[in-house]
Amino acid sequence: MIEVKDLIFSYGKDKQALHGLNFTVGDGEIFGFLGPNGSGKSTTQKILTGILKGHSGYVSLFGQNISTAHTQDFFQKIGVLFEFPYLYENLSAIDNLKYFSSFYPANQCRDIGEILEKLEFKTDFLKKPVSSYSKGMRQRVSMARALISSPKLLFLDEPTSGLDPSGAVLFRKIIEEERKKGTTVFLTTHNMLDADLLCDRVAFITKGNIVALDTPKRLKEQNSNQRVRIAYLYQGKREEKTVEIPELERGIPFRHDEIISIHSEEPTLEDMFIQYTGRRLS
């Protein structure tokens, strides 16, 4: 679906934002693009969506070179959720969606009412202006806008931002459903839980370079310290011990009466983010 080779981009002469990125995204894959602020995530997404011109290197989408791909036909096949819910504040959710969907062929568009219902949008706000909506409601309308044209390739920038936990769960469920339909998802986020739960593969980008690219599981495994923490009871006392995994092959290597829990000390995706990018999540 997406193929990027040696992608370089500079803002002016002295400010190189991307230093030769290489990655591919397969059909129906959810690909996480993770990195701190200013790392080049947005620049990459803008190049892929055709907003930013003037890159060098090879980029293809839908099997077509990007320099010729950004036609109306291309824009009909993509959906983009921006970092912020950009909507006409004086118009209602329905009017916003009617307006934005009017640019796509009618047979390609989903039913507005149905999609808003799926996103659990409060029906009594349907005809009220967006200026009266909460951040979560605006995010729902923005997601509806991105999905309304049944895109084959979906660019999502911080999709669960501004949502409460149940809203975040709902969005993840919807993204999963889209993938099941065959939609490819390019996900840009700081939310490591979203990336861990949703992404087939993730790339860590920092200072315009991809420093790691693999499945979240393998990235964690590769950086695991091969230890487990065991909580147990012995002679009525609760104790904890950290054990190297190879030691476990011969059984629990200490005296105990009862094992309470065994936790691997595998790093989280957030630990990986900090390790690869050298930056903490804010």
């Binding site: 969506t49 055709g50 109306q72 291309f74 983009v80 921006f82 912020f84 640019f103 796509y104």
Partner: peptide, 15 residues
């Protein structure tokens, strides 16, 4: 329109 950010949305619309 600039403050609402909707100009950016028009960048990815098919027209």
């Amino acid at each position: 329109e600039k403050q609402m950010g909707v100009i950016r949305v028009h960048g990815i619309l098919p027209f």
